[in-house]
């Protein structure tokens, strides 16, 4: 936080040479942000992260997956609880992510209410959840990460050609915004747990990539939602005229 404050006030006073309007209010705001983030992280570390990480390891444990049965060769579909957990945890952490909330508030204001705060957050959360679940599937099957990334890029580029122009920049932003304070530790723990317990995976090499997919898929889902609502609006227009 200190370097950020230095940069802001340095440029403001040395380069722009203008006093900051409402300086008191802005400083209070900064203080609230620091305090709030401090509480937020402290609470996450006390409550959610240890339990979430423990669960990630327990759910990926072969003993849990085979249950009472004797040891057998596991297939990718035996990990269904893992995929479900990956989807659910990623969805719920995306909803709780403060950076996403910040961008959603801004987008709502800029679009004069056309983009609802909750609509954007849910669209992003669905994308993030699908990305994390797919990332879990990738680690279980051991397929190379770059296939998924390159296929995802091509898909995004095709979508971009058809999506409404207004949404494109916001959609591209929503990827990086999702993977932040709450999501990264839990999703990374899940990836590490999977790469440690799935036979034949190396945690150092295969444990990565969950974040990348969690980051890519919100772009797809936000573009898709925009296309869907445009198509719906177009149809409603046709019917009314």
């Amino acid at each position: 936080m200190l370097p950020i404050a230095l940069i802001i006030f340095g440029f403001q006073y040395l380069i722009l040479r203008k006093p900051i309007p409402n300086l008191k209010k802005i400083l209070t705001g900064f203080l609230l942000v620091i305090l709030g983030l401090g509480f937020f992280l402290e609470g996450l570390q006390a409550a959610l992260f240890p339990l979430g990480k423990l669960m990630a390891f327990q759910l990926t444990d072969p003993h849990f997956i085979t249950g009472e049965e004797a040891y057998r060769e596991l297939q990718w579909w035996d990990y269904y609880w893992v995929y479900l957990f990956a989807f659910a945890i990623s969805f719920s952490t995306a909803i709780a992510e403060p950076s996403l909330l910040a961008v959603a508030i801004k987008a709502n204001k800029v679009s004069a209410g056309a983009i609802s705060v909750w609509g954007l957050r849910i669209a992003v959360a669905i994308g993030a959840a699908s990305g994390t679940a797919l990332g879990a599937y990738r680690i279980v099957t051991g397929t190379p990460l770059y296939w998924y990334i390159i296929a995802g890029y091509i898909f995004v580029l095709i979508q971009t050609m058809f999506a409404p122009r207004m949404i494109i920049a916001l959609a591209y932003d929503s990827g990086g915004v999702t993977t932040s304070t709450v999501t990264v530790p839990l999703v990374a723990a899940l990836g590490l747990g999977l790469a440690t317990t799935v036979p034949g995976r190396n945690p150092l090499l295969d444990g990565f990539g969950m974040i990348a997919l969690t980051c890519l898929f919100p772009i797809v889902s936000v573009l898709a939602f925009a296309q869907l609502s445009e198509w719906k609006a177009g149809r409603a227009n046709k019917n009314s005229t």
């Binding site: 983030l37 403060p98 910040a102 508030i105």
Partner: peptide, 16 residues
């Protein structure tokens, strides 16, 4: 703590 922290953060966001 998480709930209080998020509340303060959002307030500070709009103010600062």
């Amino acid at each position: 703590l998480v709930v209080i922290g998020l509340t303060l953060f959002v307030q500070g966001l709009n103010m600062g």
